[in-house]
Nucleic acid binder design. Structure first.
Lengths: 211, 211
DNA sequence: CCCGATACCCCCCTTTCGAGGTGTTTCGTT
DNA sequence: AACGAAACACCTCGAAAGGGGGGTATCGGG
């Protein structure tokens, strides 16, 4: 809920797609209680502009060209624990959503969202609420009970995705092939995958990493 | 080049992201010689609205919820060979671009494009030119000499991506396992992949299919 | 202090993969 | 009629993968 018509909710937009930024600006500026104070196209710009304007709400895409969106969220929240950030993303599985929320995001929306939902989210988050879109929440619930991969396992899986055999992975990570096999076994179990190829597609779909 | 200021270029926007549509409308309507005559969020709507308005230019996203963008392009071009279509996509490898251009698209732009490029493209295509973004053209050139996968090979690879062994693939397609192996060998060769897992990530990256 | 999670290592064994080569039929193009 | 391309099938064979068991060391939290 807006405090009053004289103090509008000040918003920073972070997204590398100029056309999408334009859409966000148009939608936001059409509302009497909202205003866009700055636009950033990179993670670096995002931090600079946040420092300069201290927006009430930051709308942020995770797919930035220069930095990982999650890291930007972390940085902002460390220096400004009161920063309210809403993640706006095309579609990345549950893992990205969990990471973003853990990093301190207050909301998580898909870009395929409607104007109405976007505006509702902005106002809800500004009022101090957390707001995660239903679709995303469902996805989160679905995998909540499941085990997640350790850093090492993700590292192994990434190499496998690029066509490395267990032996090559072992060389790259300076561990034995048997250890790699052990990791692979755990990965298959955790992701309920039939084989390494399946594991890679599942991991991509759930957002463990990208290619 | 616009014919005259009295007859503006009439544009149909097809994209399932309302926010992005808003951005496109704002950018286009800011130009004196351009106007948006309709917006569609699905393939079905796209065809209906095209029939109703006969736009000069159709800006189209490939990732529609109800239909494949390529098929929509084909349909439009069959019934209206003079339809000028510019594809606007997030990022799908060279294969999607080739298919779109073959299906009759006149332009291919990435959504990360600038307003300036977008407007230039619209005017260029309206003037009868073909306009493919530099990044996309580079990608096209890079794989131009390479062999592309046959339908059957894509079919096999899709099943492999979902964790099917050669034997299972054989069962599903009612062919022998040896034949599947033959296909796999060809796939690995054509995509320059180390193994089946690598083949899947390469195919995804180049846009042969999605998961 | 022990426990669980993580990372690491080693053995076994069976199945699957992937690299060879060779051959058919079918189908659309020339 | 002749051609290549594609799909199909059969063969061998070594190298991976993957499923099972065993184990050690570390680290942080209950």
């Amino acid at each position: 809920m807006p405090k009053s018509s004289s103090s509008r909710i000040r918003i920073l937009i972070v997204d590398d797609h100029p056309v999408l930024r334009e859409g966000l600006v148009t939608i936001i500026e059409s509302q009497a209680d909202l205003q866009v104070v700055a636009e950033a196209g990179t993670g670096k710009e995002a931090i600079t502009l946040f420092e300069a304007h201290h927006p009430d709400i930051t709308l942020m895409d995770l797919g930035l060209p220069d930095a990982n969106g999650i890291d930007v969220i972390k940085t902002l929240r460390e220096t400004h624990p009161d920063a309210r950030i809403i993640v706006l993303t095309t579609y990345l599985g549950d893992v990205q959503a969990i990471r973003a929320l853990r990093a301190g995001a207050s909301g998580y929306l898909l870009k395929a969202t409607l104007r109405r939902d976007l505006l509702d989210s902005i106002r809800a988050v500004h009022a101090g609420l957390r707001h995660v879109q239903a679709e995303v929440a469902t996805e989160l619930g679905q995998h909540a009970a499941e085990l997640s991969l350790t850093e090492r396992e993700v590292e192994v899986l990434k190499l496998i995705a690029t066509g490395c055999s267990n032996k090559i992975v072992a060389d790259r990570l300076n561990i034995s092939e048997d250890t790699v096999k052990g990791h692979v076994r755990n990965i298959l179990f955790k992701l309920k995958a039939n084989d390494r190829t399946h594991a890679v597609t599942i991991a991509l779909h759930r957002g463990f990493f990208e290619i």
